[in-house]
Nucleic acid binder design. Structure first.
Lengths: 216, 216
DNA sequence: AATTTGACTTTGATGACTCGAAATTGATGA
DNA sequence: TCATCAATTTCGAGTCATCAAAGTCAAATT
């Protein structure tokens, strides 16, 4: 069993360096809010445990075992966030600190039950992909519609805004999660985005609001 | 913020001594599986923190503040158990260790959301009362029907067996959670309990099975 | 009153995690 | 080549929770 401190270090390593990049100890120290001496000590320890490759004075990278452990923490974090928002109705803004705790508290069994309850979701409320049990991320790319090509038609997976007025307004044009929506035009000067509904109708919306529509 | 270790000590103190009884350090040591020296150290510390009254060589009892903290831990534990069983479909037998962890991981906010989601329940899956936000327990007495008086008619609040066959069998006689059931007779010799359904029909059932019917 | 007994307390140590500050290292630029 | 500098490592120390073992106390027994 890994301590929650160790899990935090692995998660930071994964976030900063992914599966294979070397991460400098200074960056880890800043990310976790500890001193660099503390990081050195911990990295040696994690090196001995086989969770990271520790390269003196150069940095560290996750090993296969470290990567798996990190992805499990991330899976628990994202499933927790989605559960809190979709089932318990928490606001997205308040969900992160809760998930920071729950990611260390959920057993494998409980994590799987939550996963099942939510229908094996692919994305968390922020649109970040949720790793599966094996630590893998299904390769589909969810992005805000404003990062897509103009003229395209996309599948709306998630709204990162939770206020009912916004959701209702979109719904009044037939734009709902699970349905389709097109990007007709994005005006970089004015910051106005023109969406096209499934019925071919065009509506205008600000860039910031459009960024809340995650599509694939 | 209390550490989870401190919360475990407070919970043990509450379980062993309630609101006001002195608990000897030996009993605490056995309950928590630590040595008595460890208990002495911790009790002095809790005494300094104002959570317990520490009486050297005699024992300790919860203060008002300690009692409140203990009840909050118990509330989180029992709400977690109920949530795991009723919402996520866990077996009652596997729920306790999960709740031992979650009781230290749920924030006040999250606890209240779970409470609300479950409809402010009064009892956990084992029939133990769930303290409210203020740490108080609503005074109604839930007990197995076999501990009730013969000839009485009671309100079935909970079944502590979760196997569908048993639940269906009871339902086939019109005995369901939320409904009424009477205790016609309890034969101490044979161990056979005779229940009376709402419709006046009599059915026989073993003592152990009858103990799963919690009524008030 | 002296002894025994059992419970409690003290002491010195450990492991996990952290800090701050001093020492070291390796690359860079003069 | 050599001084400098930023990053890393080492070192001494502190907190929390724990243990084992030795010490102390008070009540019960003789």
């Amino acid at each position: 069993m890994l301590t929650s401190t160790v899990e935090d270090y692995l998660k930071a390593l994964q976030r900063l360096g992914g599966r294979s990049d070397l991460v400098s100890f200074g960056r880890i120290a800043v990310a976790l809010g500890v001193t660099s001496g503390t990081v050195t000590t911990m990295m040696k320890h994690l090196g001995d445990s086989g969770l990271v490759d520790y390269l003196p004075r150069r940095g560290a990278r996750l090993t296969e075992a470290g990567q798996l452990a990190a992805m499990k923490v991330i899976r628990r974090h994202r499933l927790a966030e989605l559960f809190l928002v979709d089932v318990l109705g928490m606001e997205m803004s308040e969900v992160h600190p809760e998930a920071e705790i729950l990611e260390h508290a959920l057993s494998d069994r409980l994590t799987d039950l939550i996963d099942q309850y939510l229908g094996h979701p692919a994305y968390d409320p922020h649109g970040s992909p949720i790793p599966d049990r094996s630590g893998a991320i299904r390769e589909t790319s969810l992005k805000p519609i404003i990062e897509r090509a103009e003229g395209g038609r996309y599948h709306l997976i998630r709204l990162t805004r939770t206020d009912q007025a916004f959701i209702d307004w979109l719904a009044s044009f037939g734009i709902t999660v699970g349905g389709d929506v097109g990007l007709a035009k994005r005006d970089l000067i004015t910051g106005i985005v023109t969406l096209e509904t499934a019925g071919g109708r065009r509506i205008q919306i600000g860039e910031a609001a459009a960024a809340a529509l995650l599509v694939e």
